[in-house]
Design a protein around this nucleic acid. Structure first.
Lengths: 208, 208
DNA sequence: GTCTATACGATGATAGAC
DNA sequence: GTCTATCATCGTATAGAC
């Protein structure tokens, strides 16, 4: 079979990702997805079972990749800059912002995360915690090693604040918008640098 | 008329807020809303014109109140603690966390906010920016007065990070969970104190 | 002014033929 | 695996009762 061809399943995932990013979940109909992917409407239910599950699979494809990048960068930071907080934060922040800024579905990705907030009790949240909780715990350990005076509870508060700030930055929801004259890559780099500086100061802040 | 009765309009708003929090905008049908509110399906279009406008009005009911509290506390902070960053941040953070912890619908409201991210509702975004942007700008001015060395762009980045961390804290999404033995009010106070300290250090951080 | 009954086109999902 | 056909349900609109 020709390697230039994608499977029906992959074509659906790709089309869904692009459309979700553009118009959101509710704003994207499966008929739009299957039309863009050039497959029959019923194929999405055959391969994914439901629209809900299709959304989860779009998300997983990106999240797995991001987690690998984060852990690889974290290991490098520990090796090359032991005891330094900045490189650890960079390992956490940069793969996420790179993904959010990726034109191919990054927008969809961040919206799935936001949905996980909202569905406070739901299976998506459990899924995230089970699949990717070890990544967060690894970063908690690394940060604790850089800021040993911090007690554990306070460290977790500050990790939560970092995650929240990062999510917000990824979502482009706030005051800051990318100016027309600035390239996407440069904008992401700026966001990462600003966030790392902000969070480093916050995390190092005195206990009392 | 009896004051113990809510109007049709209010019953629709209340039912919508609860259901939006539970199942999202897309996941909540107007028929579910009107069924819970015990009104006819057509009443929502009569009173609100569309589902989209109903969503906006659900936001307005909570946001107007929170914005008033924020601005009142901000004015007091400027009067009683001129030049101090902490009280300004407290004026921004505390009304939001109080709303998130309020048993009367506020808890539902924060989940509604997360839904807004998740579903990338552009018109809701525009609505929020138009209606409440002046509050954020007022805080930007106040913070700039406390940290004059910060240039404007950097200030806006940091305000976005603060907003993100605050939203995350409001949602109870992260690693930190309220322990069973801690009262809701005490947990909110702890969250506010931790966030104010974290953000103050981040905002004051040196430019380079 | 408020509200209801009802209808319309589009959607997500499913069953069964191929 | 993929299709066509079909179904319940969705948001919205309208006509008219009180």
């Amino acid at each position: 079979m020709a390697s230039t061809q994608f499977s029906t399943k992959d074509r659906i995932l790709g089309a869904a990702e692009e459309l979700f990013a553009l118009h959101g979940f509710g704003g994207t109909s499966l008929r739009q997805v299957t039309s863009r992917a050039d497959v029959n409407i019923a194929a999405v239910n055959y391969h994914f079972g439901s629209k809900e599950n299709l959304i989860n699979e779009v998300f997983r494809r990106r999240m797995d990749d991001m987690s690998r990048q984060r852990l690889a960068l974290l290991e490098r930071a520990r090796r090359e800059h032991p005891g330094e907080l900045g490189p650890v934060l960079a390992a956490f922040v940069e793969p996420a912002l790179a993904l959010a800024g990726d034109r191919h579905g990054g927008g969809a990705f961040i919206r799935v995360i936001a949905r996980a907030y909202a569905e406070n009790n739901d299976s998506l949240r459990r899924f995230l915690s089970e699949q990717y909780g070890h990544v967060l715990r690894e970063f908690a350990r690394a940060i604790a090693g850089c800021v040993p005076h911090l007690d554990k509870e306070q460290l977790y508060w500050r990790l939560d604040f970092l995650s929240g700030a990062l999510t917000y930055a990824m979502s482009d929801f706030g005051l800051i918008k990318r100016p027309a004259g600035v390239a996407e890559v440069a904008h992401r780099k700026r966001a990462a640098d600003e966030l790392i500086r902000f969070a480093a100061a916050g995390i190092k802040s005195d206990k009392t």
